[in-house]
Design a protein around this nucleic acid. Structure first.
Lengths: 163, 163
DNA sequence: AAAGATTGAATAATCAATCTTT
DNA sequence: AAAGATTGATTATTCAATCTTT
């Protein structure tokens, strides 16, 4: 084992990052599925739409803001449309493009889900990190995010949460 | 939009967390694939084995330390075995169980991959966070990880990186 | 009967190719 | 010809059921 830097602190940090993400995602997924009938995938897509102007977004923009490829998003929106939570709308200014738009049912569903999700999240985090630590964590994440995921960084600029 | 707490800071923080993870994973995946012919999945499995006593681990333990289910791990190890990087070994004390053990080829492969991976990681992170920030980030991650992924926390206890 | 691991069936993700519009 | 979006083919993941060992 001599020679391989398996104990580099940065490697450990990234391992922690992956484990934390996995644990958090699992936790959230279970709760969302049980209490709201939403997968984490659907939750993320619906939340993006809910936070967008007119509650709609171009397919490509939505794909860029999620972990899905454009084809993956096409399929996801197919399913969301079949479930009545999202509707495709044509784009008048560019007939190549489509908007994915939240329906009223989709709006209700995501708002209820966000409330439950936030309750869970606060129960989970508030006992572990205090407000200062959360703020610090958020700052560090933003620095990293801006570097490794500039597409997401740009997408969040016009939003109220960018400050 | 009045009523739904879409701008709760904790929600924003978790969004940042997901975006950072996605960006980092994408980045690492591309590089590992191109330079080492390893998927992130394989990299994680091989790294776990490399850091384990005798470079082997029970199937169920390995599954618990990755994002895979036990059946998912079975399939992954099938592929790793076909590629000659991992070998299954019977467990003398419990014939129900199997070890997944790193082969010599697997050991060489993961050591080379870790070196390249770390170079990339340092290039990526060192310009963004300083040593203190990385340490802080690591501490906060560990607090969260211990809470949301206790299985991973326990698994890391006997290792040198736990301090 | 419970635990470790594997297998079959169903679902979903991606890449490359395709179609329409610009 | 390039961009937005979709579709087909391939691959991989999970849940539930199964098999072996304890």
């Amino acid at each position: 084992m001599a020679g391989a830097p398996f104990d580099d602190p940065l490697l450990t940090t990234m391992g922690l990052f992956a484990e934390t993400h996995a644990g958090l995602a699992h936790h959230q997924e279970r709760r969302l599925e049980q209490q709201c009938g939403l997968s984490l995938q659907w939750f993320e897509v619906l939340l993006r739409l809910a936070r967008s102007p007119e509650r709609r977004l171009r397919m490509s923009a939505l794909a860029a803001q999620t972990t899905l490829s454009t084809s993956g998003l096409t399929r996801a929106v197919d399913r969301l449309e079949a479930a009545g939570l999202v509707r495709r709308e044509t784009c008048p200014s560019d007939r190549r493009g489509y908007f994915a738009a939240l329906t009223d049912a989709g709006t209700e569903r995501i708002e209820a889900a966000v409330r439950l999700h936030l309750d869970e999240l606060h129960q989970l985090v508030d006992g572990v990190l205090d407000a200062d630590q959360i703020a610090t964590f958020s700052e560090l994440l933003r620095l990293l995010r801006d570097h490794v995921n500039p597409a997401a960084a740009e997408a969040s600029l016009p939003e109220a949460t960018a400050g």
